[in-house]
Design a binder for these strands. Structure first.
Length: 314
DNA sequence: AACCGTGGCAACCGCTTGGAT
DNA sequence: CATCCAAGCGGTTGCCACGGT
């Protein structure tokens, strides 16, 4: 008992796929495509359930899959993205062309986790499941990799003149691209605040075929003023505090009929992504806590996004 | 040779999401 | 609304190769 929910109790094969089965699936998909996965096994002559076929195709057989070891760049990206979004493997995979969520998840669980968890200190507290919190030395290590040159003093984060953090900006800036000299350029309906020049944005090691997906903010503050065609709602501005900074930014990415809604009102509910940045000096932790939430814009003062980083005095 | 522990990774399970009705 | 169903997602399992004893 406890038997497999998918598929009606035919003699459905499970376990590893044979080369013959692979061939059947490839042949079928490449000639017919897949309309409905549950129909695929029958039409392709496979004793599998549709779910299994889908998984096999997605994770292994599809032609644009990328195999082999992860490059250092990919690894770095995974680490940074995981720091930003936690165990959202599919989301992370969307930043690595040809890599699957399964592969990245396996890679993380078998290798990177080990690598990061060198000093397994007193980080056992708290109940965070998907949020990521790295010790300062670990975070430092990543930052140093990014900086490419080793700073003289690696002891604490405080020695970095311009503390930086990295997070995924996909939901925040839907329209933008990376210029040849590695700055983020806001497209179309966005305009930059006149007080802000593009130097404020520094794109860190951004893959050119994935522009606009990852930014590293070195500045202490940036402000965007979208035009009315684009709705972005700040919930709370980042606030500096003793020993670091914490706060929430939230950005509406509510769309309707493929268009950004431009009739924001105080009654409507908007889907937002918010990020909680924190730096705890006493604990020596540094990280982001992303989560999605539905907020009600009963006191919307739309128009700005303000992201403040750590005080420069750090 | 036989056994055993280990790690990598493909595949599975169950839950969630989203669209159609 | 509710219901159904396919697809997506992330945690987990279990197979298998490999190295050590």
């Amino acid at each position: 008992m406890g038997h497999h929910s998918c598929c009606n109790q035919q003699k459905v094969k499970r376990g590893l796929w044979s080369p013959e089965e692979d061939e059947k699936l490839i042949k079928y998909i490449t000639t017919h495509g897949y309309g409905c996965w549950s129909e695929v096994p029958e039409k392709a002559g496979l004793q599998r359930c549709g779910k299994s076929c889908r998984l096999r195709w997605i994770n292994y057989l599809r032609p644009d899959i990328r195999r082999g070891r992860f490059t250092p760049e990919e690894e770095k990206l995974i680490i940074n993205l995981h720091a930003a979004v936690g165990n959202r493997w599919a989301h992370i995979a969307s930043h690595l062309p040809g890599r699957t969520d399964n592969e990245i998840k396996n890679y993380w669980n078998s290798w990177i986790k080990k690598k990061i968890r060198k000093p397994s200190k007193a980080t056992t507290n708290s109940n965070q499941s998907s949020q990521s919190t790295y010790t300062q030395n670990q975070q430092l290590e990543f930052l140093n990799q990014d900086l490419a040159t080793k700073p003289q003093n690696q002891e604490t984060l405080f020695t970095i003149p311009n503390p930086s953090f990295i997070f995924d900006i996909n939901p925040i800036l839907p329209a933008g691209h990376v210029t040849a000299n590695n700055f983020y350029q806001i497209d179309q309906n966005f305009q930059e605040n006149p007080t802000l020049n593009s130097e404020t944005w520094h794109v860190n090691q951004l893959p050119q075929d994935h522009p606009g997906e990852m930014l590293q903010f070195n500045s202490s503050c940036l402000t965007l003023t979208p035009l009315l065609e684009n709705i972005m709602v700040p919930i709370e501005h980042m606030q500096s505090c003793v020993g670091g900074a914490h706060g929430i930014i939230a950005v509406d990415h509510h769309q309707m009929n493929d268009q950004w809604v431009n009739d924001i009102d105080t009654q409507h509910e908007y889907s937002c992504s918010s990020y909680n940045f924190f730096w705890d000096q006493t604990e020596g932790t540094f990280g982001t806590t992303p989560h999605d939430e539905i907020i009600s814009t009963t006191s919307s003062n739309m128009g700005d996004i303000v992201i403040s980083s750590f005080p420069s005095s750090l």
